[in-house]
């Protein structure tokens, strides 16, 4: 079996003669990713799952309050 990411064709990992496995990778992404598991020989799609980006992690805070600043 091989696991791959549709949007990242350079990423693929295969197992020989295994019925289960774990593949860990660190990714940075800002849009959904589709992860596929395929048969290594026939390339038949076995299962597909979407890794969805729900919300961007932007944080906001108050600017410094400066009553006497002349240019703000």
């Amino acid at each position: 079996m091989c696991v791959s990411i549709v949007e990242r064709p350079e990423i693929e990992h295969c197992w020989d003669n295994y019925r289960e496995g774990t593949y860990s990778i660190k990714l940075t992404f800002s849009s959904d990713l589709v992860v596929e598991l395929r048969d290594k020989e026939a390339r038949e799609l076995l299962v597909s799952e979407t890794l969805a980006v729900v919300r961007e992690m932007l944080r906001y805070r108050h600017k410094r309050r400066k009553p006497w600043n002349l240019f703000q």
Partner: peptide, 18 residues
């Protein structure tokens, strides 16, 4: 599989910023 990202609070109180 769903990835959910949440913001970290800046300090103990919600700073009310957006």
């Amino acid at each position: 599989m769903l990835l959910s990202l949440t913001g970290w609070p800046v300090l103990a109180a919600d700073n009310g910023c957006d």
